[in-house]
Design a protein around this nucleic acid. Structure first.
Lengths: 340, 340
DNA sequence: CCCTGGCACTCGACTGTAGCGAGTGCCAGT
DNA sequence: ACTGGCACTCGCTACAGTCGAGTGCCAGGG
């Protein structure tokens, strides 16, 4: 408990050195590289206390100390000072994101940018449908019994589904359907849609009732219920930096986890407004990712949040820098979305 | 040169054993596990010839033999018998692919299926726009000066672009634009589109000429010229199978290559009709992939090809099995697309 | 002429030993 | 409360020795 200022300074120094060198750090090296104003022996005593409290540990009896997950946690919460982005980084962000033609394009550029800047694995969630509202619904006749239902969300996401009608339909009826759907649904949040869709079916003229029923089913089942979240990933090659030291030599579990969209969504999809979430090692609920840390945040136009983004790396990561970058990128993307 | 039947049989046996065990195979083990009808010493002589011809090599002086890229090539070209799929695999394919709601869904399911069956990295190209034709063009007004241009291709692909108009436009004009574009472009292949689009602008009534000009620019620039190919990837975790033995211990270059869509397209996008292409190690043009092999083929409804798919793995892979699986999956996907 | 058994040889993998050195814990002294 | 000193631990490296799988070659036999 009694962690006085110097002990905290020692912990900070250990974390910083270990992150930089990737090697267990000893008492002598510490006093040499940081102005602690005390001797190695004193530092050793402090280290013993820190170890007892579970903030650091020794890989083997006669080696230096390495921060534990708990140590990183303390470091992140209380010891790290926010590192402002370099002008070069700011410029990189702007240069990278202008000129995106498309939501797809925005997301792809963002995820690559994030991977490049942090030199880690980057994950970006497409704007969540659940958090979007309907901007427009379009029906495109493919044949007399087939329609393409296109939904355009205010976040720029566009989803389409092929709808197989129970009976042939004429062009006028399609127009009616389109009008009815748009009148009722445009502007509503996807999460509030179900009852409205229900009403839509009930109020539909008999003429188009069967078609509307089919349409509503597709709308609810594929767009609302299994609310189709999408994810973009980049920078997996960065997992191999630092040789086999990180991730105790096996990338396997990490790569497996990254293939599961559900897992990724859990990681970065539960963004709270304007917080940056840092999950360190063990704190992670997914077993495969116990050797990794995740820094994530939400993004969206203005103050609203429409999706999450973040990076994943070894617990031994540069938290202050990563946090700053993730935040900055999220803010830029938000601004970009606000313009549309 | 003088490779008689027995020497070929020896090579085949070496490849099969090495693929199965991942360990250099010696003469004694060979005669034990295969009915070659000769003694180890004879096999040794054959091996010496095979080595001289560059089909196998010794990792170190006193170890067994390992196939070279050239050896695999000979094996694939002349020695491997096609391995029919097991009924279980066939069922797996069908079960996996039915119930896809969406082109996106089809592609995602396919790539995961392929990764799972071959236990390797799978790559699937979305149906190429260049090889698709226009089924329908839709214009959705977003505001008075903004349109969403939606293009639906016969392959099921749907692309959308936001178009910023030079001047406000009324609903009737939008209807006109839509009609004009569809009359002229529906049914044409994307690759033949440019001159038609040109004509479209020239023939447009003065009233909608400026808007049509802008539209055509977007159409050409973002859909035709940089013909937007997309790729899905799965199974990267399979790269870690076989410990660090494959890929000489470093996944780095492989992962890097897999992040480059351009590279992937080059690998699987140049499909010839009804051929399965096998690239072994060195044969690969991409330096990063010199330690890997790629098995790819084209797919599409009926006999036409709209895109490529394939898998990437260590040169030490089960070629007959992989080839059979890749072909089968491609055929099923083709059938699936033909139904739409 | 081709195949075979035998034999000497090579060389990587593994084991055990020894010395080195970074780093620690503890203690007595200021 | 901090410091210098000292004994101790233990992983790392180098080195020597042994083992054994596998080879190349050769002489003999069908």
């Amino acid at each position: 408990m009694g962690l006085d200022d110097r002990k905290l300074a020692v912990l900070r120094a250990i974390v910083e050195d270990y992150v930089a060198t990737q090697e267990p750090v000893g008492s002598k090296a510490l006093v040499e590289r940081h102005q602690l104003g005390v001797s190695p022996a004193t530092v050793r005593n402090d280290m013993a206390v820190l170890e007892e409290e579970g903030y650091i540990r020794q890989p083997h009896t006669s080696a230096g100390r390495v921060p534990t997950d708990r140590g990183y946690r303390l470091f992140v919460d209380r010891l790290s000072r926010v590192k402002p982005l370099s002008p070069a980084e700011r410029r990189a962000i702007e240069r990278f994101l202008v000129g995106a033609v498309d939501l797809d394009d925005v997301v792809h550029r963002t995820v690559r940018l994030l991977a490049q800047l942090t030199r880690q694995v980057a994950v970006v969630q497409y704007p969540s449908l659940a958090r979007s509202s309907v901007r427009h619904l379009e029906l495109v006749p493919i044949s007399t019994t087939r329609l393409m239902l296109v939904m355009i969300a205010d976040t720029g996401r566009v989803e389409q589904r092929l709808v197989e009608l129970p009976a042939p339909i004429c062009a006028d009826d399609v127009t009616d359907l389109r009008r009815l759907m748009n009148e009722k649904l445009v502007g509503t949040r996807l999460s509030e849609t179900p009852p409205l869709v229900q009403a839509l079916v009930e109020e539909a003229p008999a003429q188009v009732r069967p078609a509307m029923t089919t349409l509503s089913t597709v709308l609810l089942e594929t767009l609302v219920e299994r609310h189709e979240e999408r994810i973009a990933l980049a920078g997996t090659a960065n997992l191999t930096r630092g040789g086999l030291l990180d991730f105790q030599g096996s990338l396997r579990p990490i790569l497996e986890a990254l293939e599961e969209e559900v897992v990724l969504l859990k990681l970065i999809g539960e963004a709270e407004p304007s917080t940056t979430r840092v999950l360190i090692g063990d704190e992670n609920e997914i077993d495969n990712l116990r050797a990794a840390s995740v820094v994530s945040t939400g993004y969206g136009p203005g103050a609203t949040i429409v999706g999450g983004l973040g990076v994943l790396g070894p617990t031994r990561m540069d938290y202050p820098g990563t946090i700053a970058t993730v935040r900055a990128v999220a803010r830029y993307v938000g601004e970009l979305l606000a313009q549309n």
